[in-house]
Design a binder for these strands. Structure first.
Lengths: 223, 223
DNA sequence: ACGCCTGGATTGTAGGACAATATCATCGCC
DNA sequence: GGCGATGATATTGTCCTACAATCCAGGCGT
């Protein structure tokens, strides 16, 4: 049961809750805690050597993020996304990221565009990627698009679409071929955005997400 | 400072937090607590006669909902939406509710369609509305569309679009004429959905929201 | 077998205490 | 007299202990 974080440096005052949230989030997204695993307050107080207050607060934050599910008097468990959840989330992502791609392509500020071009430079690297590297690259890319789009509410909302959680659930099945295809799609999106082609950017983003959704659902139904 | 809820019946065990959240939400949405007002833990413990635990938990839930803003070591204040916030939120609503209208129009289940028709019956009432009645009717209508669309994640997300908060901030300026127009737009959306016309439903919903956004922003900039 | 009931595990809430931090008013210095 | 340092106050962050309420499982009698 050693979760690799028992003996970490005690964080400064005011950072206790954030620290617990971070550790638990890492554990969930890295599958050290499997979906359905119970998170028991007394165990967590022992593991992090803090009182129940911060533990309860951390659990509430994770619940608000959607990473864990909470039942009254029965505690929290790591959330498991159903195939339906994943399908519905991708349907929403299609609209929201499609919008983000459009706004990003329309963005006029030269400085922002410069930063964007800089942030996504890595996707033009031709070297094959490891699955975990691609996961980070993918998250960064979608973040960069959202940022260039300039809609803060959209950025906030994208956190609720649980992309990391989906990836944690289906990401293990990523093959080199799928990775290569995804990178190519990212480049197509990036080119349309840099060419200030809103319709093209939207279309490329939607195509990318439709393929990703199909892949995720196929993987999910294999179980 | 009597917030009208001090002496309410103490809720059953396990409902304390929910009770506090409800009361504060009501106070915020009814403008009994103005944007920027501070929510101080010690005041709330006194007002509701509970300990700090449930109060802190309630504040956290309201923060997760986006109704209050939270600063470290400085406490919580009632959130004030800027014109930019409102504009961005409507841009997102346009996409999400447009999608919901489309899916609702495509929904095949006869029983669900029946329930929808029943839930929105009130919008075909020709009597003029009071502003507060329209607010409830509007929320119910959009909820009903979301429900018929059958995407649960979409329903969850719609809570984060802060329609009630926006309405609380600009709703005071609703004139009878604006109300009448909105009701007509609702009917157009409903008709397209019941006629199973996805494109028409999406277009009608987007038109409705574009007008509402323009109205809200105009009102907001008057200050 | 079936349902009741008891007991352990776990969460929900109370209340008090202290440390850390922010806020604000006052005071001294230039 | 204005401006920065200093201290008092208010408020939040965390810890501790205790108890009530609830859920779950397993034993009991019928």
């Amino acid at each position: 049961m050693d979760q690799s974080s028992t003996a970490s440096p005690p964080p400064a005052h005011g950072a206790t809750v954030a620290h617990i949230v971070e550790r638990l989030r890492e554990d969930i997204l890295a599958h050290r805690l499997s979906p359905g695993a119970r998170l028991i307050e007394s165990e967590l107080t022992a593991r992090f050597d803090v009182s129940r207050g911060p533990v309860r607060e951390a659990l509430r934050r994770l619940a608000a993020e959607g990473l864990i599910a909470h039942a009254p008097n029965r505690g929290a468990v790591v959330r498991r996304l159903t195939a339906r959840d994943i399908s519905e989330l991708f349907e929403i992502r299609l609209e929201l990221e499609g919008l983000a791609a459009r706004r990003a392509a329309e963005a006029g500020d030269a400085c922002e565009r410069e930063r964007f071009a800089d942030a996504i430079r890595v996707i033009f690297d031709d070297a094959p990627r490891l699955a975990c590297d691609y996961l980070a690259e993918n998250a960064d890319f979608h973040d960069a698009v959202m940022r260039l789009a300039g809609n803060r509410q959209l950025q906030d909302l994208s956190m609720r679409l649980h992309l990391p959680l989906i990836m944690a659930q289906v990401g293990a099945a990523l093959t080199a071929e799928v990775l290569r295809l995804s990178v190519l799609e990212h480049r197509a999106i990036a080119k349309a955005i840099l060419a200030q082609d809103p319709n093209g950017a939207t279309a490329a983003m939607r195509a990318h997400l439709e393929r990703a959704a199909a892949f995720a659902l196929a993987r999910e139904e294999e179980e």
